[in-house]
């Protein structure tokens, strides 16, 4: 077994330290070491977007990042979005629009939507659809998801 890396990082604003093997992805570290199970494993090869997190301000697939790579970096996950007594506006919009069915893709879609709205607070429908092209929903609720993101943009 390869020696473990000691990684110090910021996750949802808090300093976090962990040990990981080089072969562990950021997704595995989040779920198995840090018990942040919001990010989901879908395809594990960068196609489905269920593991989307924001790394140093950019949307990434956490299954395609090594845990060892995030030393000194900042990660935002779905767990960091809501306040203790209040959902994030994107989460509210997903609920209001019934933009989820089974829910597996939802954390990825919401993080992807957050990365979009952080960069472009008033996207067109076209921009929303292209931005979210890397997130797959097998319940095929795309229209409701797109409407939720547009509603969240309008509400903030």
């Amino acid at each position: 077994m390869a020696r473990k890396s000691h990684v110090q990082t910021t996750i949802n604003g808090e300093t976090v330290e962990f040990l990981c093997e080089p072969r562990q992805s950021l997704l595995e570290v989040l779920r198995d070491e840090l018990h942040l199970t919001g990010a989901k494993e879908g395809c594990n090869n960068g196609n489905c977007g269920a593991c989307s997190v924001i790394l140093d301000g950019r949307l990434v697939n956490s299954c395609l990042v090594l845990g060892a790579e995030i030393d000194g970096k900042s990660v935002e996950t779905i767990e960091g979005l809501a306040e203790p007594d209040k959902l994030h506006p994107i989460q509210d919009a997903f609920l209001e629009n019934a933009a989820l069915q089974c829910g597996i893709c939802t954390p990825g879609f919401i993080m992807s939507a957050k990365a979009l709205l952080d960069k472009n607070p008033n996207p067109t429908e076209h921009e929303v659809r292209y931005w979210l092209a890397g997130n797959l929903c097998r319940c095929t609720g795309y229209d409701k998801i797109v409407r939720a993101v547009l509603d969240a943009a309008a509400a903030t």
């Binding site: 790394l55 950019r58 990434v60 697939n61 395609l64 990042v65 979009l116 931005w131």
Partner: peptide, 9 residues
């Protein structure tokens, strides 16, 4: 190339 998350890396 890929979607937004791929283009981030």
């Amino acid at each position: 190339i890929g979607g937004t998350a791929i283009q981030g890396r």
